[in-house]
């Protein structure tokens, strides 16, 4: 019952191979991010605050765990977004993104 993900958070000593197998694409975060953004943000583009590269959010790396998700830049591995769910709130930490551009309706 979600023990795998909880353990991997409590025990930072997890092999690289195990961590690699948990890596997903940005599309995997689309459902959770739809609770925050009005339109599908995975087709939007985020500029990484770490390395400055701009990519579709769907092309970023996602690490999912019981409480939420961490979205990382595939270029520099910097954290672009963190989303966490608590009993009462959904938290978004977007300090790793210089900007997020979402196609608007003209």
């Amino acid at each position: 019952m979600n023990k795998v993900s909880n353990q991997s958070m409590e025990q930072p000593v997890v092999s690289d191979r195990a961590i690699d197998s948990l890596r997903l694409d940005g599309n995997a975060a689309a459902g959770l991010l739809s609770e925050i953004f009005a339109s599908d943000v995975t087709v939007g583009r985020a500029k990484c605050a770490g390395c400055g590269a701009t990519r579709a959010i769907g092309a970023l790396h996602v690490y999912s765990h019981g409480m939420g998700m961490v979205v990382r830049c595939p270029g520099c591995d910097g954290v672009v977004l963190r989303v966490a769910r608590t009993a009462t709130h959904l938290w978004l930490d977007a300090r790793g993104a210089v900007s997020i551009a979402i196609e608007g309706q003209s």
Binding site: G26, N27, G31, S34, D40, T42, I57, G58, A59
Partner: peptide, 9 residues
Amino acid sequence: LRGPIGGYF
């Protein structure tokens, strides 16, 4: 269930 989700893939 909720969806459809994801416009990238």
